[in-house]
């Protein structure tokens, strides 16, 4: 007996994925098909761009060339409904991002046959006070590498305590970005950091 995804056409499945109407299992299967099928990825990008346009974003938002990464991010996100969000309930961005980046890592591994280098901790004890702190990375096609480890806050804290530290750090980061850009090379990085760290305060 055919499963729900198998019985859907490619376009129906993509539409459902973009609209966040698929369950986790089905969503993962669709993402798996996206990984294997470049033409499907391109169609997905067009669908998503279309929806972004309806929501007020520019259509150039998500080009097909970037679909792998963003497909993973969207597949890991719950549907965003303009009128359906519960008042006062906010899901921290770093939690949503954690799932997204895990999916992105999967994408990189599957598509590139890449190498996953995992270590127990993010920070290593520095030798003589100085050490490189290489992140855990997935090496993707073309030599790109993406960090796959979630943000870590403080030493030995639980998730709730880390979240409180994260909120506190956002205050420091705002101030840092506000003053630091005076002497930096002109680029969009400081503003993007400001946006990135405040998008879900």
């Amino acid at each position: 007996m055919a499963s729900k995804t198998e019985s859907m056409t490619g376009d129906e499945a993509l539409s459902a994925l973009v609209d966040g109407e698929l369950g986790a299992l089905t969503r993962n299967r669709i993402v798996g098909r996206l990984l294997e099928d470049p033409e499907l990825r391109a169609r997905w990008a067009r669908y998503h761009a279309g929806r972004a346009s309806l929501e007020g974003a520019e259509p150039g938002l998500l080009g097909p060339g970037f679909s792998e990464r963003v497909a993973a991010a969207v597949s890991a996100e719950p549907p965003v409904r303009a009128s359906g969000r519960l008042a006062g309930v906010r899901r921290p961005l770093w939690r949503r991002g954690g799932a997204a980046i895990a999916a992105a890592a999967l994408v990189a591994v599957v598509t590139a046959g890449g190498v996953v280098a995992l270590r127990g901790g993010i920070f290593e004890s520095p030798a003589s006070g100085v050490a490189a702190t290489a992140p855990d990375t997935v090496v993707a096609a073309g030599g790109d590498a993406v960090p796959i480890v979630s943000g870590t806050y403080g030493d030995g804290l639980g998730p709730a305590e880390q979240e409180r530290v994260r909120q506190r750090l956002t205050v420091y980061l705002n101030s840092h970005n506000r003053f630091a850009d005076a002497d930096e090379m002109p680029n969009v990085m400081p503003s993007s950091r400001l946006a990135g760290f405040n998008a879900d305060p």
Partner: peptide, 16 residues
């Protein structure tokens, strides 16, 4: 334009 900002485990799409 539109850009993607990736930092740690975050992925943001931005219009500028």
């Amino acid at each position: 334009g539109t850009l993607v900002y990736e930092h740690g485990d975050h992925l943001e799409s931005l219009a500028i």
